[in-house]
Amino acid sequence: MTGTDDALVSLAGVSWSFDGSPAPVLQGVDLTVAPGEVVVVLGPSGCGKTTLLRIIAGLLRPECGTVRVSGRAPVPGQDSAIVFQGYRLLPWKTVAQNIGFALHALPAAEREARVARYLDLVGLAKFAGAYPAALSGGMRQRVALARALACQPRLLLMDEPFAALDAQSRELMQMETMRLIAGAEGPAPGIVFVTHSVDEALMLADRIVLMSPRPGRIDQILPVGFPRPRWQADPRQAPEFAQLRQHLWDRLRAMVLSDPQSDFYGRG
């Protein structure tokens, strides 16, 4: 594993809880992410994975512990870009304006050129002037992805970005997204990807960070060694895939059955 010095992200002893709540959402999280690495944070509801993402983005400040992104406390918009679950496009801006919104620091001409390039990348050049309401879910997701990639971040944070898509679109978008990220300009960004889907985690991750709920803690960190690019060499037939999948499911099931706040508590 990479040392803290050249790590893209390093978290040490990070805890966080809601104002006034005695039960912490996150407790003692240690994690490093290397440049270009894809780390998938997997866990059931209530494990604090989305909170963890917000802390890495600099949107939340940890109560204790330290967060470093590229060696300093993260500044929103400068050290990372986020792809959110619900797309979060501005309905009153066109597709091009939505992508441009994230590039406010650039001079206008450069911004326009960059927006055009990334619209091209995600195959939506024809829809530059369309409002989000006129697009399908998959297209909106690609706009949201283009908005994040256009910032050319060293760190890309993805918060269950495909959760709103149907099962087929979801699988296609996973591969499409990995291809687009690989095809974008510059070095590949490091990625922290939050999901509750075991299969999504196995398809995307270099390492899976399995989290347990209440309080949110890291349960295990598992390397995933399937060859890349996985949209060409589908790893799902490999026996190791089935083994890892089984292992992750067993752990998740155990967590959910022993979590008093889950719907399945004690039903094993």
Binding site: L59, P76, G77, Q78, S80, R88, L90, C151
Partner: peptide, 25 residues
Amino acid sequence: RDLVEMAKATGASQGRIFWHIVLPG
């Protein structure tokens, strides 16, 4: 609130959030 958080994640200032998100909404 989700759009405001998205804007903050892009490093938008309070003024920018007002003009581009609060006011059009």
